[in-house]
């Protein structure tokens, strides 16, 4: 038993050291990186998505973010996860146009989107996106929560940390001061001021609430399988715990007749 404990503590030590070395944030030269910690419904082993929040978040994305940011790995049919019915999804899709073709004349053409289509982005390619945004690329948001350390809190902080630059700092034209962004200067203007969208069923439209809703939506977009993953995980862990006990019992039963005299 002592040997086992030693092995486990050594293994833990190694993994801990490795993990610490990866997860320690690399502090940016020049400031930034102030990340607020927000409590999310999807945190922890029992995490879940609040569908109402996801729908509000989608609305924020549509009306505010989608003018610049794409969400290329999401298809309209995925919105069933948000609680929309098949008819509602068809209607949402029909409001968008996608490129199809070539037709019999050899030309590409526009048609209304169907649920099977991906959500079209605002720009046809990265170069067009940069050209329209002074050389800066508004990143695709499909994976943003997984693509940043502590992603949900990071995006939330980014959206709610615009501030007046300190007097000594010169903010060039086209840049904005943000306390969360590495280096403090970001090319994206503040997207949320509060009441940026009208909620059909009423609700909190403060910038913090809207930011939290859109972050929930983006967390879903990055990890739509999250709820299934955690639910399955709980079942698997319970099964394995029982297996550990039962296999230990078998082992002790089988080994009962071995006279061991260990030094």
């Amino acid at each position: 038993m002592r040997k086992l404990m030693r092995v486990v503590s050594v293994a833990t030590g190694i993994v801990a050291a490795a993990v610490v070395s990866i997860s320690a944030p690399a502090m940016a030269a020049g400031g930034g990186g102030e990340i607020k910690q927000h409590e999310w419904t999807f945190d922890g082993p029992f995490g879940h998505f609040d569908k109402a929040s996801l729908q509000r978040g989608f609305q924020v994305y549509r009306e505010v973010c989608s003018s610049c940011h794409g969400i290329e790995f999401i298809s309209f049919r995925n919105f069933a996860d948000l609680g929309y019915s098949e008819a509602e999804i068809k209607a949402i899709a029909a409001e968008y146009e996608v490129t199809d073709g070539p037709n019999d004349e050899g030309e590409m053409f526009q048609r209304a989107a169907i649920p099977a289509d991906r959500v079209p982005g605002p720009f046809p390619n990265e170069n067009a996106a940069r050209a329209a945004n002074g050389g800066a690329y508004p990143v695709d948001l499909s994976l943003i929560v997984k693509a940043r350390p502590d992603g949900a809190n990071y995006v939330y902080s980014l959206l709610t940390s615009y501030a007046e630059a300190p007097s000594h700092m010169n903010v060039p034209d086209g840049m904005y001061y943000n306390k969360a962004y590495s280096g403090n200067l970001i090319a994206m203007p503040q997207p949320l001021y509060g009441d940026d969208i009208t909620l059909a069923n009423g609700g909190d439209t403060s910038p913090e609430a809207l930011a939290a809703d859109v972050v929930s939506f983006l967390a879903w977009a990055s990890e739509p399988e999250m709820e299934t993953r955690k639910r399955t995980g709980i079942a698997v862990m319970l099964f394995l715990f029982v297996m550990c006990f039962v296999s230990y019992g078998s082992m002790r039963y089988i080994w009962a007749d071995v006279k061991k005299s260990k030094a």
């Binding site: 099964f239 029982v242 297996m243 039962v246 296999s247 019992g249 078998s250 039963y253 089988i254």
Partner: peptide, 18 residues
């Protein structure tokens, strides 16, 4: 074979199927 061994093997079979 005692019950515990049978139980272990049975659970193992279930796990393998899963």
């Amino acid at each position: 074979r005692d019950f515990i061994v049978v139980a272990t093997n049975a659970m193992l079979a279930v796990g393998a199927a899963a």
